[in-house]
Simulated scan of single mutants.
Amino acid sequence: MVNVLFSALSKRWAEYEAPLRAALTKAGLDARLATEFAPEEVDYIVYAPNGPVSDFAPFTKLKAVLSLWAGVETMVDNPTLTVPLCRMVDHGLTESMVEWVTGHVLRYHLGIDQNILGQDGVWRAGTVAPLARDRKVCVLGLGALGAACAQALAQLNFDVHGWARGPKDVDGVTCHHGADGLADALRDATMVALLLPDTPATENVLNAEGMALMKRGGFVVNPGRGPLVDDTALIAALDSGQLAHATLDVFRIEPLPAGHVFWSHPKVTVTPHIAAETKATTASDVIAENIRRGEAGEPFIHIVDRAAGY
């Protein structure tokens, strides 16, 4: 018998209980799933940082912590978490992110704000988008989410360039890495989408210098993490016309404070961290597979590199 503790907000239990039980059964696991166990009885924790568990030391039998979140920046430095930590890479979440990023890139590419939303009785002819193949789009981050978004945009014939900290090979995408590669990826890009994790090495990865490399009148889409963008530099670039607009789904402080300049800035679209969310049904399959692997002595999938922070 495998004991699986679900440690997240109570509303998540109502959402996940049935799909998790079904996934564990489908995986052939003899498992007990609950929100409470004696700590010394627990084999696996299905985990969100805003749940009740923060000290893992009492869980003396623990084999792995299986995160419900894709981002693990709030978990990797926990000194009591010494067992393997696996982040959530959920194909349902990936599909959602691809749809959101593609939608906002196409919004900018086609000029939807100008041609559809501003219907004020004025006939504005002559503004036609170029072909997608004549637009350079840069995707910063080529992990599971970034690579999927980059490939979707490439399939629409955009000239897609991607950047990662280390070498990557993504079909249909011109890949760059390292400091010099970042400049090459950003140079003359009309649109930049950020899909990197939040680590000390990625903070302000899109700064004033990087924005200056972009094609004048370009666009920024950030569904990754708030600290990836230098907020002050972004406002300056928008005010100067170097950038035409930014759509931001993530922020350094969430919820975004009511008085924040992003709410009132005419060149900023705020969305409330909705670009993609883990789906209970597909995430449950990922969790059950990792528990099956743990019990079979196989390597876990999506295991976190603590040194890298993701």
Rank of each mutant, 00 (worst) to 15 (best):
A144N: 15
Q114W: 09
R165I: 02
L156Q: 09
V160K: 05
R135C: 06
G92N: 01
A125V: 11
V101N: 04
G71M: 00
V89M: 07
V137Q: 00
G126Q: 07
K61P: 03
G162L: 01
G126R: 12
H91N: 14
A64C: 13
C138G: 03
D113N: 13
W163E: 00
K61N: 15
E99W: 03
A144I: 04
V170K: 05
T60R: 12
G141E: 08
T80V: 00
V170Q: 13
D77Y: 11
L140F: 00
W69Y: 03
V98Y: 03
V101T: 12
Y108W: 09
A150I: 06
N78T: 02
F158R: 02
F158Y: 12
G103W: 06
M88Q: 14
V128L: 15
A70S: 15
S54D: 15
F59Q: 04
L131K: 08
A164R: 06
C149G: 01
A152P: 08
L106F: 04
L106G: 02
V173R: 09
G141P: 08
L93E: 00
L68Q: 09
L142T: 04
L110W: 08
V65F: 09
T60W: 06
D77T: 12
V53Q: 12
D113E: 15
V160A: 03
C138V: 04
V76G: 02
L106D: 03
L153H: 05
A57E: 08
C138T: 10
T82I: 14
V170S: 13
V101Q: 02
K61M: 07
T60P: 06
V122S: 10
V137C: 12
L66T: 15
V139L: 08
R87K: 11
V83K: 10
D134T: 02
L131P: 02
L85D: 09
E73H: 13
A132D: 01
A152V: 02
L131C: 11
V173F: 08
L131N: 10
R135S: 12
N78M: 07
N115G: 10
G146A: 12
V98C: 11
A129V: 02
G126I: 04
T174N: 12
G162V: 04
L156A: 01
G146Q: 09
L142E: 05
M75K: 03
G92P: 05
T74D: 15
L117A: 14
G146N: 05
A148C: 05
G162C: 10
I116L: 14
T102G: 08
A150M: 07
A144Y: 05
T60C: 05
A150G: 05
A152T: 09
S54V: 14
L81D: 12
V137E: 08
P58C: 06
R124D: 14
G146F: 03
G126W: 07
A154F: 03
D90R: 04
G71D: 08
A148N: 03
L156E: 00
V83A: 03
